[in-house]
Design a protein around this nucleic acid. Structure first.
Lengths: 349, 349
DNA sequence: CCTGCCGGTGAAAAGGATTTCACACTGGTA
DNA sequence: TACCAGTGTGAAATCCTTTTCACCGGCAGG
């Protein structure tokens, strides 16, 4: 079997629709129709299929894309392939696309707007059927070329400013508010916030939620105070550095709301350096820490529907590709607080 | 600025090389030459570039691929996008490709040979410039169609049986041997092994290394005994289930060599269920556990050069794409034992 | 002065599929 | 019988770029 295939395979030249047509005694047009559901007499269709099978014909997707002005792959552009949040999101996209004939390819922009721009160019140039993007930046990510050419685009998790595209995101403000409220209720008083880069919508919204909770509990002055607020870069090292700073304060915080999972890893690391662990210092992570079960003691987190984010984005994209012309929509998913015992409260109040 | 771009962008029709040619007063051939380094009079070249910029011309990569019979993207097919080992490997590939004009797209086969086959078809049909694949299976992964069409292919981490392609992998046998030897030296006696699926080269080789170490220390009988050997699926749940089985034995093992990082998570989970932790029971992981710093107590692991694996694979691929005709080669990278204090030995011997 | 060569150029072919359009044929109806 | 509608078919156009090939200059050598 293998031998046969290999024997045939030595031919380095592509089997084209023409070859199949000749073998089946029909025109190329008919062969195309057989493979694309055109009307063809059953007898002919059969002989075409047989000929195609015998020759090992596989359509040239490039030629097809050129003619149809649209390929059958969709691109998912994410800013950090090493962040489990995005890989889970990717799984959601894939599973949704799975039910169609579309293939998903992943592009890692690495939080780098240049790389991202290149990938957007590739998506456009390769005439991809659609693009789902978690933007590396609010203002520099330009989806214009895509939308101009009517390529369906969905923004996920992060929404580039003034882009007229469907979007799926989480309720960051609400999540931040619930998180900090939980810490307050657990008995913590000096609650810090380590959020993402300034200018990123996710950073700002989560911080705003945090402030709203503080305001409700401790009044406007506390909420406006920036002593316990740090901006970092959504990565492990950034979280660690920010936490070290906070711990070095004359009066360090007794709890911290961390606006992303990776930074939480850094925070726990910094805590360990000083010999402290939750719930001695309260730690609440926005986004679950991967394999949180390993963390001892385990910590409370705002659980993000990463998988659903991806699935919903893909569904939206598929709708658009099916020709939906409904006005641009934004879907907002709710977060869920995942409480684990050990953050019940500070050691002694 | 944005407004201008947008104003131009309303055109939904593609700017072609013809439009640029007309605007610059030259032939399409000349425009092509300008963009591909053909010989063109400087003055003409300049006017072409100006015209292209003014019109916002971006070459149609599909048409180009069709004509050149080769696109400018390479595919990286991995079996589990949620495994940090593979995402790190992906980073290595990307960074290497970065220095060229090639783009990398990631495909997640999900350990599913059907999905994998589809992605291989896509890679072939899209006439990708090259493919790096961590095969989902030894025997079902068929690279024949690719190699027949002379598409450069590199197998990474796992080597599909009888595929004549360059390969990069780690020295699994050696790594397994070192791992188990370390456990023996630490004073453990009844050392189990949880390895991957039967038939996977990585599973078998790591197990063989484990057995070699046992044989050296305890003789052939111990090495041939399968009481403490389990095959699982390289995932968290598989590791947990296997460990539960081992713990339920009349005489449970006092240490375990786990052949992959994710299964180790499951193992630690199973241990926790019974209230035990390393070094009470020795745990040695093949492949580092993500954010191992969080694990308390931390554990010893065979560190895999995942990033280098990716980078080396990409380098090999680039060589082939540059036309290297040297015979097929396999690069084997060494593992490194990452010792952490807490696995110094069993509680009481 | 003539020949040969070489660098730059444009017309046209090639790459492989889809799709339009015209046509031939069938079967039913006036 | 003549006509019409409908269906299946193939020739040819189309998608956009790269690349071959022929050609036209100009320049150097004989």
């Amino acid at each position: 079997m293998k031998a046969t295939v290999h024997g045939e395979g030595m031919r380095t030249q592509l089997v084209t629709i023409h070859d199949v047509a000749r073998a089946a005694g029909v025109s190329p047009a008919t062969v195309s129709r057989v493979f694309n559901g055109g009307k063809v007499t059953p007898a002919r269709a059969l002989s075409v299929q047989e000929a195609a099978a015998a020759l090992g014909f596989a359509p040239n997707r490039v030629a097809r894309s050129l003619r149809k002005q649209r390929s059958s792959v969709i691109a998912l552009i994410i800013p950090d392939i090493e962040n489990p949040f995005f890989t889970s999101l990717a799984r959601g996209v894939e599973d949704a696309a799975q039910r169609t004939s579309l293939s998903v390819v992943l592009c890692n922009s690495d939080e780098d707007t240049d790389k991202e721009r290149r990938y957007l160019e590739v998506a456009l140039g390769e005439q991809m059927a659609g693009v789902i993007v978690a933007a590396a930046s609010q203002d520099q990510t330009d989806l214009g070329p895509l939308t101009d050419r009517r390529v369906p685009v969905v923004a996920v998790d992060r929404r580039p400013r003034d882009a007229e595209v469907d979007a799926v995101r989480v309720d960051n403000h609400h999540g931040g508010e619930v998180a900090t409220r939980h810490l307050l209720q657990a008995g913590y008083h000096r609650i810090a916030c380590i959020t993402g880069p300034e200018g990123a919508s996710t950073s700002e919204e989560r911080l705003a939620g945090h402030r709203a909770a503080l305001r409700a509990a401790q009044g406007g002055a506390a909420a406006a105070d920036n002593t316990y607020v740090r901006h970092a870069d959504f990565r492990v090292d950034g979280g660690r550095a920010a936490m070290r700073e906070l711990l070095a304060l004359p009066e360090p915080p007794d709890a911290v709301f961390v606006a992303n999972n990776l930074m939480t890893i850094g925070v726990l690391d910094a805590l360990r350096e000083t010999g402290r662990t939750p719930p001695d210092v309260g730690v609440l992570s926005f986004g679950d820490v991967p394999w949180a079960s390993l963390v001892r003691p385990s910590l409370t987190a705002v659980e993000l529907p990463s998988y659903e984010l991806g699935r919903t984005a893909a569904d939206l994209l598929l709708q658009r590709m099916d020709g939906s012309v409904s006005p641009v929509q934004t879907v907002v998913l709710r977060t869920k607080l995942q409480v684990r015992e050990s953050t019940a409260g500070p050691a002694q109040t």
